[in-house]
Computed example of a mutant assay.
Amino acid sequence: MSSIADNIGSVTRRIQKATLQAGRAPGSVHLLAVSKTRSAEELHEAVAAGQSAFGENYLQEALDKIDALRDVPEIEWHFIGPIQSNKTRQIASSFSWVHSVDRLKIARRLSEQRDPALPPLNICLQVNINGEESKSGCLLDQLPQLVGDIGPLPNLSLRGLMAIPDPDQPEASLRLSFRKLADALTDLKASRPGAGPLDTLSMGMSSDLELAIAEGATWVRVGSAVFGARPPKS
């Protein structure tokens, strides 16, 4: 069975190869290790292999790990799960990135509750790119207004867009979903200069990261290919 270090090496090589094939600059795509349900010991192993950015979906589980790993300063914590209004204070104080902001109310609360002494909280707007009823995220046509409203908020840095396309689509449709998100970011940068850096596309997972990188991903969110298959729920 492969170790976490072996897996990180394999995923890193996949990212490097896809980046090169897409004609993009080396180092322009970053690995976000999705560590939900994984133990602090597994994260320690990943850090020892050179991984520093970890994505968490569940707040209380994440807070427990953040506390357990306080002696590992190089870790950068990303929140990537759905956000309830009553959880924003702890998210604002504990994370460097939030990839799953999907409405103005959540952005306002994160802005108000982020300690001004901390660096601005990096946020991505989650887009429901395929209009799936079961998924969080704003619709593409809602983006310009949302970006315009969020841009001026203090203590936040609007970095870009995130999406979780329907993984059951044919490959051509999946590629088109990634391209639509990339085009939306390009349009926002052209139409709303000064709204934020708008330099980030958080898209692509273990099974489709090559397609996402070909269409412009800057963060790929990878869980099983790093940590192995999740154990079945008891």
Rank of each mutant, 00 (worst) to 15 (best):
G50H: 02
V34H: 00
Q84M: 09
F79N: 04
K36E: 02
V34T: 05
D102F: 13
T37G: 00
Q113Y: 12
E61P: 00
E56F: 03
Q51T: 06
K87V: 09
S93I: 06
V47T: 02
I75N: 00
H44L: 15
G81I: 05
Q60P: 03
V34W: 01
W97S: 04
L43R: 00
P119Y: 09
R108Y: 10
R103V: 08
W77M: 04
T88K: 10
S35W: 02
V101T: 03
N57A: 12
D71T: 12
Q90S: 14
E41K: 14
S39A: 06
W97G: 04
Q113F: 10
D71I: 05
F95S: 05
S85L: 12
S52V: 06
Q60E: 15
Q60M: 11
P119H: 06
T37M: 00
F79E: 04
N57V: 07
L63R: 13
T37H: 05
E112I: 12
G55P: 03
Y58F: 04
S39T: 15
E61Y: 04
A117Q: 13
D67V: 14
A107K: 06
D115A: 13
V72S: 00
L118K: 15
K36L: 00
A33K: 00
V101D: 05
R103Q: 13
Q84T: 07
L104H: 11
L104R: 10
V98N: 08
R38Q: 03
A33C: 11
I75R: 02
H78I: 02
H44M: 15
Q84S: 05
R89S: 14
D67G: 13
S94C: 14
Q90Y: 11
L104E: 09
P119F: 08
D71W: 07
W97T: 11
A49I: 07
I66S: 07
E76Q: 06
F54A: 07
S111E: 09
E42R: 11
R70Q: 15
Q51C: 02
A117E: 15
S52W: 04
D71A: 11
A107E: 13
L63Q: 15
E56Y: 00
P73S: 09
S39N: 02
Q60D: 11
S85P: 10
E61C: 00
K87W: 11
S39R: 05
W77T: 03
R89P: 12
F95N: 03
T37E: 01
S35F: 00
R114C: 12
S100G: 12
A49G: 08
E74D: 10
A49K: 01
A33Q: 02
E42H: 09
H99S: 05
R108T: 14
L69M: 12
F54Y: 05
A48P: 08
F95Y: 13
I80T: 00
S35Y: 06
A53F: 02
R38H: 06
S96C: 10
Q84P: 09
R38D: 01
E45C: 03
N57K: 07
A49M: 07
E41H: 12
E76D: 06
